[in-house]
Simulated assay, not measured.
Amino acid sequence: MKRFIIICSLIFLTSCSTNFNPSHYSVGDEYELINVSGNALELFPKADALYASQYIPPEIAEIAWNDTYILAKQIEKIDDPNNPDASVTNETTENYWIIDLKNNRRFGPYTKKQFEEQKQEFRIPKQVQLQNVKTYFTKEKQPS
């Protein structure tokens, strides 16, 4: 009887579903959003040794891409003066980045105004609009 209870318990425990929280999301063929801690996401090249300079630090809040460019909005973290081992989100400091996929170059950080000007200079289509990164992780969770 004890074996039966143990086996049933193991089956029950292993079949319980967990709250699936993906740790990465592919952005095009060469990049991925990686969950580094909590909700802090960074954009990193899949071939990190070759394109390590194209890295965009956490916390990426919004992203968009096409075959030519990746656009990203980053919320800058600052040190917490009360706890040197922690950081707090400074939501007033936003950095914008552009990665030119054809030439493997990263541009930024930009202010919002500089970012909009640079998008026009690069002739990035208006359809390539920044979206909250949670949108992509939600799409990935949905069953096909």
Rank of each mutant, 00 (worst) to 15 (best):
M1S: 08
K2I: 14
I5S: 03
I6G: 02
I7T: 11
I7V: 15
C8H: 04
S9V: 13
S9E: 05
I11W: 06
F12N: 02
F12A: 06
F12R: 01
F12P: 04
L13N: 08
L13F: 12
T14V: 04
T14P: 00
T14D: 00
S15E: 07
S17E: 13
N19C: 00
N19Y: 09
N19Q: 07
N21Q: 13
N21A: 12
H24V: 11
H24T: 15
Y25N: 01
Y25P: 01
S26T: 08
S26N: 11
V27Y: 01
G28S: 01
Y31W: 11
L33A: 03
L33Q: 02
I34L: 09
I34D: 01
I34A: 04
I34K: 13
N35A: 10
V36E: 01
A40Y: 00
L43E: 09
F44C: 09
F44P: 00
K46V: 09
A47S: 10
D48R: 09
A49M: 13
L50Y: 08
Y51P: 07
Y51H: 11
Y51E: 12
S53C: 00
Q54K: 06
E59D: 11
A61S: 09
A64T: 08
D67P: 04
D67Q: 03
D67F: 05
T68F: 08
T68H: 12
A72K: 03
Q74H: 04
Q74W: 00
Q74D: 02
I75N: 02
I75R: 01
I78E: 15
I78K: 04
D79N: 05
D79C: 02
D79T: 06
N82R: 02
N83C: 05
N83H: 09
D85P: 00
D85N: 10
D85S: 05
S87T: 11
S87M: 05
V88N: 03
V88I: 15
T89G: 02
N90F: 09
E91L: 13
E91T: 13
T93Q: 12
T93R: 06
E94K: 15
N95V: 00
Y96H: 07
Y96Q: 03
Y96V: 13
W97A: 06
I98K: 02
I99R: 00
I99F: 03
D100H: 07
D100S: 04
D100G: 03
L101C: 10
K102M: 14
K102P: 07
N104P: 02
N104L: 00
R105F: 08
F107N: 07
F107M: 09
G108Y: 07
Y110S: 13
T111V: 06
K112Q: 14
K112S: 12
Q114W: 05
Q114K: 07
F115Q: 05
E116H: 09
E116R: 09
E117M: 15
Q118L: 15
F122M: 10
R123D: 08
R123A: 11
R123V: 06
K126E: 15
Q127N: 13
V128A: 07
V133Q: 06
V133T: 05
K134C: 10
K134S: 15
K134G: 12
K134I: 15
Y136G: 04
Y136M: 02
Y136R: 02
F137W: 10
K139Q: 08
K141F: 06
